[in-house]
Structure formats: structure tokens, C-alpha cells
Amino acid sequence: MKSLFKIYKSFVIVFFLLFASHIFANQPCWFKELLKDLAKPNVSQEFKTFFKNAPQENYDAYKILHYANKTKLRYNIDALNTVRRLRSSDEFVNFVQGLQIPNIKNIDDFLAKAATWYNKSSGGKGYVAVLKNMEDFVSTLNKSNVQCDNCVYLFNRFIVNDIPTGVNRQACYWLMEDVAANPNLVKNKKIAVEHPVTGLDGTTQRVDLKVGSSPGINLEYKWLSSNAPLGKDTFIREFVKRDMHSINSLDEVQWRIKWNTNQTNKLTKNQVVNWIENLDFQPTTNLNSAKDKMMRLFQSYGRKKDPNLTILDYDDLITFLKNNDDWFSKIFPNI
């Protein structure tokens, strides 16, 4: 009797699909694909339930992921729910559409195109994680009354090919995650994703995020998810030649670095001291100027705890750096 019922049920489904395919022959291709997906034996019950007596928004979520051309993603119930939720969030929609991201017509276009590159060098984060991260970031900016200049850069990274390696996309993910986790840092302040400055030597320099002003804080975001450590050249170019050169106080700079999972590439104080101790670049005039600025900044910083500190030469600076730890944890907080 049971097997007879199964045959009957299969017959009804096949009939329904044939009927549906006939009825919807003139429907858009995404809808035809949905019908095919629903008929697949391996599709989850959750997926089927998502469309049962469902509002239009559920179908729209599928349509967006179908257009994204990510086959597995459109079966992913978390992805469908996330897309549906974000499309109906005035806060998120207004923010993203207000960014005026190049070549993005509306929120649907953004959510579809964001599916293209999300998994390329975002520390393995999936589409849902990327969107959730954006959602939290937007929510923090709104709740904390933050004005953001050039935030379009952060979102644009997820819809364009981040040539050559995708490291900027990864840093953008981390920046948004960190801001969302530290609302007090940005509360009632203006933040700015800074534009890159290309030097004569072709190197590009910029501070990732500037928060507030006079005193503000310049935040450098790095997510070193592979085993590669932070290189000496990067440190000299970005810390010595950029940060030390352009700040008035050590309170104005912080490097927020995410290391690999087992933290084997983590920067140590000894490494930094060693780089500063053996600092050498041309021309020597710029080197001397950089050394002088560091002596001034570290003396000023050190005197806040030890009024007796007076740095008279570079040896004094190195001695201070070796004998104290708090400057290191302040500039390179343990993330």
C-alpha cells in the first residue's frame, strides 16, 4: 500500500512539474531554475520550506543569488535568509545605495555582485560572513553616529577583482569587523578611509583608517592569514617613513594586525627593536630626520610614565625600547 502511495506521489510531483513548466514556459530563467532546483532529490527540506507559502522577498533572494551565478550559494539557506534580511533593512539599503558604488545600480545588484569575489582572500570567509560583517559595520556606524569618508572603498573591494592578490579585500573585511567590535573607538567621530598616495618610487602608501582629529588615531589594518610574517621593508616604509613622519604623538598611531590561526607569524617586540636599531636607508639625511623624529616621539611618550626619561641619542632610544614593553602593546595591540 505504501509503495503504491509513493508511486502515486511521484506521479503527482512529475505531473506538477510538467504542468508548472508548461505554465511557466514564458517565465524568467531564474524561475525555471528554481523549479528545477526544487525538484532535485538532494535539495534540503529547509530549502523547500523557504519557498512554501513564502512572500515575494524569498523569491527575490533566490533571484539575486541566481544572477550571481554561484550554483551552490542559491541553495544555501543562510545565504538566502541573509539576502532577504539585508534587502528589507532600510538601514543597510540606504547606507549601501548612498555610497554610490561604481557600476552598482541598486541593493540587489550589490548583493549579487558581492557574491563574485567574496571568497578570494577574505581569510576563507563565506558570502554570509562577509555580508553579516558589512551589516554589523553599518549598524555600528549608525548607532554610534559616525560619519565615514570613502567607505565606498571598503564595499567596492567586494565587487571588483582586487588585483593582484585580494589582500586589500581581506584588510577591508578585518577593518569592518574591528570597527563593529569597537563602537566606543568611533562613537560620535568622523572616520576616513584614506586615499592612497603613490610615491616616486611607485610604492603606494596610505593609512587605512583615520578616526577623529587633533588628536585622532591612524589605524593600519593587516590580516596576515598565511605564514608570511610582516616584512622589514614594509615596516620601514609604512611605520618609519609614513607614520612616524606624519604624527605629533605616539597616541596617534596603531597597527591592528590579525595573524595566522596559530600565530606563528606574530610580530615580536624584539623584531621591531631590531629593525629600529639597525635602521638604514638612503638618503642618510632622511634617515637622520626619521631617527630624530622617533627620539622625540618616544621621549614624549615615555615621559608620561617616567618623567625622568631623556633620550639624548639613538642608543638611549634603543635602551628605552628594550627596557619597556608598553609602547609595543600600545602601537601593536594583541589582537
Binding site: V197, G199, L200, D201, T203, Q205, R237, K241, R242, H245, S246, T285, N286
Partner: peptide, 27 residues
């Protein structure tokens, strides 16, 4: 300002008489 890989900024400004003096990071 042509300061190579040093971030290009103005490092000093002074006014003297009828002249304005600007020093930049390319020295």
C-alpha cells in the same frame, strides 16, 4: 613634493617680512 617613498607632507612653515617659507618632506 618629490619625497620618494617618504610620505609627502609640509614639514615647516614660517613667515618673515613679506615672504612665506615652506619646507617639504623632500627637503
Amino acid at each position: 613634493i618629490n619625497s620618494g617613498d617618504i610620505i609627502p607632507i609640509i614639514t615647516d612653515i614660517k613667515v618673515h617680512g613679506t615672504r612665506l617659507y615652506i619646507l617639504d618632506s623632500s627637503n
